[in-house]
Each structure stands twice: as structure tokens, then as C-alpha cells.
């Protein structure tokens, strides 16, 4: 449980948000040309990092906008929040 600084609404309780999982997994441009292994990688395989992770969040009970977040999963500390389309901050 923690507070999240929504880039549109400001600081709110985490329970207002839903997490969309690992960020920056790009949808394949030519899905028809993908092998089964590549599909599995895109659909299912996750880094599931213990430490600093990039992820997508949605302010579901607020502005309902999506954004990205850099969070340390070993202590839930949030390092940065940035809008969709923006470049991820370099640590």
C-alpha cells in the first residue's frame, strides 16, 4: 500500500489505481509473421524483477488515464512517474 503521484491528478491512494504490469512491451508490428516462441515471449514471459521495475498504471477510480511508473518492487518505493509516450528516465 502506497501513495501514487498521478501525472494528471496528483498524489492519491494506491487503491484508486490498477496496475497494468510490465511497461515497454511493444506489440509486434507484424503479428502474422511471429513464431510460437515469439508469441509466448510477447504474451506470457515477464521479467518479474525484484528491484527497480518499469510498469504501466491506470488511474481507474480517477482520471482513468494510463501512465508509466518506475518502482522498486523490493520495497514499493516509487522512483519516477511519467506519461505514456515519454522516454523512461535513466536511473
Amino acid at each position: 500500500m502506497f501513495l501514487i503521484n498521478c501525472p494528471y491528478c496528483g498524489e492519491r491512494d494506491q487503491s484508486e489505481f490498477s496496475c497494468g504490469g510490465e511497461a515497454h512491451i511493444v506489440r509486434p508490428k507484424q503479428p502474422t509473421e511471429l513464431s510460437d516462441d515469439q508469441w509466448a515471449e510477447y504474451l506470457f514471459m515477464r521479467k518479474n524483477i525484484k528491484g527497480v521495475q518499469f510498469e504501466r498504471w491506470n488511474h481507474a477510480h480517477g482520471c482513468r488515464k494510463w501512465f508509466n511508473m518506475v518502482r522498486d518492487t523490493s520495497n514499493d518505493k516509487i522512483h519516477a512517474v511519467y506519461k505514456m509516450g515519454e522516454k523512461p528516465p535513466v536511473e
Binding site: 504490469g21 506470457f44 514471459m45 515477464r46 521479467k47 518479474n48 525484484k50 518492487t73
Partner: peptide, 18 residues
């Protein structure tokens, strides 16, 4: 819960979320 951490040590990715 730490399966992915061990998998990463072996250069492997798993379909898991902890």
C-alpha cells in the same frame, strides 16, 4: 515467489508475476 529471481540468474525468463 523468488522463482523469477533464480531464473534470471540462469538467463531464463518465466511466465510469472510475484
Amino acid at each position: 515467489g523468488h522463482s523469477s529471481v533464480i531464473a534470471n540468474m540462469a538467463g531464463l525468463k518465466l511466465p510469472l508475476e510475484s
